Simulated assay, not measured.
Amino acid sequence: MNRKIILFTLGAFAASMAGSTAWAVGDNNNEPPKKTKTTTQCKDGKIWDAKRSRCVEAKRSDLGDDILFDAARELAYAGQYENAIKVLDAMKEQRSARVLNYRGFANRKAGRMELGMQYYRRAIQADENYILARSYMGQALVEQGRVEEARAQLVEIRDRGGEDSWAYKALLQSLGGIRQY
Results as ranks from 00 to 15, higher is better:
G145Y: 03
V155C: 10
K86I: 00
A140G: 09
A140T: 15
G111P: 06
R52C: 01
K92E: 12
R160I: 04
L68G: 04
K43G: 00
V142F: 05
A106R: 09
K109Y: 09
E93C: 07
D89E: 12
D66S: 15
V142P: 05
S135I: 00
A84L: 06
T40V: 07
E74K: 07
I124R: 03
E128S: 10
A78R: 02
A71H: 08
E148H: 06
G104N: 04
S96G: 11
E156G: 04
R112V: 04
A84E: 04
A58K: 08
A72W: 08
L100C: 05
A76Y: 08
A71T: 06
Q41H: 12
R103E: 08
R112Q: 12
A76K: 08
A110Y: 09
I85D: 11
R122P: 00
A58L: 06
Y136G: 07
A152G: 01
Q41W: 05
A78Q: 03
E93Y: 06
A150W: 06
G111S: 08
A84T: 00
N101D: 15
Q125T: 10
G138T: 06
A133T: 03
I67P: 02
R146Y: 12
A126Y: 02
K86R: 14
A50Y: 10
D65I: 08
R98P: 00
D70Q: 14
E149S: 07
Q144I: 05
Q118D: 13
R52H: 07
V99N: 05
Q153P: 00
Q118W: 05
G111F: 09
G161R: 01
A76L: 11
L68R: 05
I85F: 02
A133M: 08
V147L: 03
T38H: 04
Y81L: 12
E93M: 12
K109V: 02
D159Y: 01
M91A: 04
V87T: 02
D70E: 14
R121T: 11
D159I: 07
I157L: 03
V142G: 05
A97H: 14
R146L: 14
D44I: 00
I124Y: 01
S135V: 03
Q41V: 11
E82T: 11
K37C: 01
K51R: 13
V142Q: 12
E148V: 13
A78P: 00
Y120P: 11
R112E: 13
A123P: 06
D49Q: 13
Y81D: 13
A78S: 15
E149Q: 15
Y81K: 10
R158H: 11
K59I: 09
V142M: 15
A97F: 09
D127E: 14
M117H: 08
R73Q: 11
D70F: 07
C55L: 08
N107G: 02
D62F: 10
I47N: 03
G64D: 15
Q94H: 11
N101M: 10
Y77F: 14
Q139Y: 09
A106H: 09
A152Q: 13
N107F: 14
